[in-house]
Amino acid sequence: MLVWERPEPPDRPVPAPLSRERIVRAAIRLADADGLTAVSLRKVAAVLEVGPMRLYGYIATKEELLELMVDAVYAEIRPTGDGWRAALRSLAEATRRAAHRHEWFADLIGGRPQLGPNTLATGNAVVAAMDGVGVDTIVPATAAVNAYVVGAVRREIAERRAERATGTDKEQWQAALGPYLERTFATGRLPALESVVRDGPHPTPDETFDSGLALLLDGIATRIEK
């Protein structure tokens, strides 16, 4: 039986009350502080001041725990606004904000579909907002937005982690690589790329995300209008 449907053990107030919700919240605190490598049933049990074996009555494996953690974050993600475009945009923006609050979340999305109750509720809200749009468009449109968001937030989180690991921010990294690019462009072999680097826009991460999402939504709009 899946963890979503498996009943919890009877409440035992001694030595400490326990529930799946308490276990998941403790695991999320660990992951927020030190990443997924800090999450194990043993470490979660230590935070909750209970023996590790008590957790197995609620969660059978670490994989189940990770699924529950992802679904808990999806409770923070709800599309808002009227119409399909507002719903898809708000879904993308809310998912990005959640990934920035919980960096580990970016590592766990994008694979097999998550089927927890909060995740399904988010999906239902999106589909409901796309009322009137054919299912042949709803499925690829939502898949495209989800794929864009996963790729974008993973790149942003990877850059954050690189900055922490190296102690250099984006501007310092660009300054260090600048002389190399100047020498490379001086060869004349990359004129198209040189023109983009020299004359193109240099948007902030927010602007990059917004403009890419707008291009995607414009394409979806063209499909719907047909």
Rank of each mutant, 00 (worst) to 15 (best):
Thr95Ser: 03
Asp82Asn: 09
Pro52Asn: 09
Ala27Ser: 08
Ile224Asn: 01
Ser195Met: 11
Val126Phe: 01
Ala147Gly: 08
Leu216His: 05
Val145Asp: 05
Ala125Ile: 09
Leu48Ile: 04
Pro117Asn: 10
Gly167Ala: 07
Asn124Phe: 13
Ala175Met: 04
Val150Leu: 08
His102Gly: 01
Thr61Glu: 05
Ala38Asn: 14
Arg183Glu: 13
Pro117Ala: 13
Ala99Thr: 11
Pro9Phe: 13
Ala214Leu: 12
Arg6Gly: 06
Thr37Arg: 15
Ala98Gln: 04
Val70Arg: 07
Gly57Val: 14
Met1Pro: 06
Asp136Leu: 10
Glu64Asn: 01
Gly151Pro: 07
Ala165Phe: 11
Thr137Phe: 00
Thr166Met: 07
Glu76Gly: 07
Gly116Met: 11
Thr168Glu: 07
Glu93Arg: 11
Asp136Ala: 12
Tyr56Leu: 15
Gly110Arg: 04
Ala31Glu: 06
Asp32Thr: 14
Gly51Asp: 15
Glu194Lys: 12
Leu41Thr: 07
Pro140Met: 07
Leu55Ser: 10
Gly219Cys: 01
Gly219His: 01
Thr204His: 00
His100Ile: 01
Pro52Phe: 06
Trp173Tyr: 01
Val197Ala: 10
Phe105Val: 01
Asp210Cys: 03
Leu213Gln: 02
Leu215Met: 13
Leu68Glu: 07
Lys62Ala: 10
Leu190Tyr: 11
Thr137His: 00
Glu64Phe: 02
Glu76Ile: 01
Thr80Trp: 03
Leu91Ala: 06
Asp210Arg: 15
Glu8Cys: 06
Asn118Glu: 15
Glu156Ser: 04
Ala45Cys: 11
Val50His: 10
Leu216Thr: 07
Thr122Arg: 10
Val39Cys: 06
Thr208Gln: 15
Ile109Glu: 05
Ala221Pro: 01
His202Ala: 14
Arg189Asp: 12
Gln172Ser: 08
Ala165Thr: 14
Asn146Asp: 07
Lys226Glu: 13
Pro203Tyr: 10
Leu216Gly: 05
Ala106Ile: 01
Lys62Tyr: 04
Ala192Trp: 15
Asp11Lys: 15
Val47Asp: 09
Ile157Ser: 03
Val73Gln: 04
Arg101Ile: 02
Val127Met: 08
Ile23Met: 08
Met69His: 05
Leu217Tyr: 07
Glu93Cys: 02
Ser90Phe: 03
Leu193Arg: 14
Arg89His: 09
Asn118Met: 05
Pro10Met: 14
Pro205Asn: 02
Ala165Val: 12
Phe185Thr: 09
Val149Arg: 02
His102Ile: 03
Gly134Glu: 10
Asn118Phe: 03
Arg112Gly: 08
Tyr74Gln: 05
Trp104Leu: 06
Glu103Lys: 00
Pro7Glu: 14
Gly200Ala: 09
Trp173Asn: 00
His100Asp: 02
Gly167Lys: 12
